[in-house]
């Protein structure tokens, strides 16, 4: 989990982190090197230091500073030994990063398979193998490996999210939805996953058949609603809400009322959204998006802001026409 959260950092942050590496290595040069640590003379060891090394390692790799990354990795290996699972995963990551061509990557892959043949429970290496399969664009194999991993550890949300992405890239929408629902079962308040599930539903409604489009769109709208309910001013959530509700308005007949609620609730399906509610949702989403764009103080991704602006412009144009 720490790995994925780190990758979400912006490029600037990663760069500034990796520029601190040399300094950090110098400062903690003595930590963990002597066999018998002497209290008070050396820094007391804490888990923070090693987590910092891991972070530095990853950001160095991202910014292309392979030499510094190698130094961090060496520190970690000398502390935890080359057979530590997590360190093995990081080492594999380094090898993948410095590999020049596909042949080298294949060799790394073979190494992973040897490790896994010896010890099937080595999750970091298993995950590296899956990522490597992906970057070698052997997605079907990656999907197979992921399902195998999830068979033995069905509460791993990182793996479920990854599997959802893979299914999505193959346009297998029901499968992707299933995976994201599994993630929600472990982390029910993850608003980004709610929004993402809404996005997947929206895409599948666009690509599906006409009959069920309204129903899927209504579900997607509700997912986005839940997402912004959990996180105020969540740009992606409002963007999706605007997108789905506009689309829903264009296909819904004008006269759907909420009377349908009573009849359809029994079989567990949610009732269709009434047109008035969808219209209000769309209006609110437009207002909110405009507000977020106006008050944006660099906390959001620039690309997302631009996309939101674009969406608002398009919708106003449509209305004027």
């Amino acid at each position: 989990m720490s790995l994925s959260s780190l990758l979400r950092r912006s490029n600037l942050e990663a760069l500034s982190l990796s520029q601190q590496t040399a300094q950090h290595l110098q400062k903690h040069a003595s930590t963990g090197t002597s066999t018998i640590p002497i209290p008070l003379l050396s820094y007391p060891e804490s888990t923070d230091i090693w987590l910092t090394y891991e972070r530095l390692f990853l950001s160095c790799l991202r910014t292309g500073d392979d030499r510094a990354a190698f130094n961090c990795l060496e520190k970690l290996i000398s502390r935890f030994g080359a057979t530590n699972e997590r360190v093995m995963g990081l080492r594999g990551l380094y090898q993948e990063a410095v590999a020049k061509d596909d042949a080298t990557l294949e060799r790394v892959l073979q190494e992973y398979e040897e490790v896994l043949a010896e010890d099937a429970v080595n999750t970091p290496v298993a995950k590296r193998r899956i990522a490597l399969l992906q970057s070698l664009s052997r997605t079907t194999e990656a999907i197979d490996a992921l399902t195998e991993l999830l068979e033995s550890s069905p509460t791993d949300i990182e793996a479920w999210t990854e599997l959802a992405e893979l299914y999505l890239s193959h346009n297998l929408f029901p499968q992707a939805v299933f995976c994201l629902e599994e993630v929600l079962l472990v982390a029910p308040n993850a608003w980004n996953i709610h929004a993402h599930l809404g996005e997947v539903l929206y895409i599948s409604a666009m690509n599906g058949n006409e009959n069920s489009e309204g129903k899927i769109l209504a579900e997607a709208t509700r997912r986005f609603c839940r997402s912004v309910e959990l996180c105020d001013d969540y740009l992606r959530g409002y963007y999706g809400l605007k997108l789905t509700s506009d689309r829903l308005l264009s296909i819904l007949p004008d006269d759907i009322k909420s009377t349908a609620q009573v009849t359809t609730v029994d079989n567990g399906e949610l009732p269709m959204l009434s047109t008035a509610v969808v219209r209000r949702l769309s209006e609110q989403a437009t207002l909110k998006l405009a507000e977020i764009i106006r008050t944006n103080n660099n906390s959001c991704d620039l690309a997302e802001i631009t996309a939101a602006k674009d969406l608002l412009d398009r919708s106003t144009q449509r209305r004027q026409r």
Binding site: V121, T155, L184, L185, V186, P188
Partner: peptide, 23 residues
């Protein structure tokens, strides 16, 4: 590991069941 995690999955499903649709 599989035994443990599978049981955990059931517990998660039970406690967070509201996150998914009834079907």
């Amino acid at each position: 590991l599989r035994e443990q995690r599978s049981l955990l999955r059931g517990i998660n499903l039970r406690s967070n069941s509201s996150a998914v649709s009834s079907t």
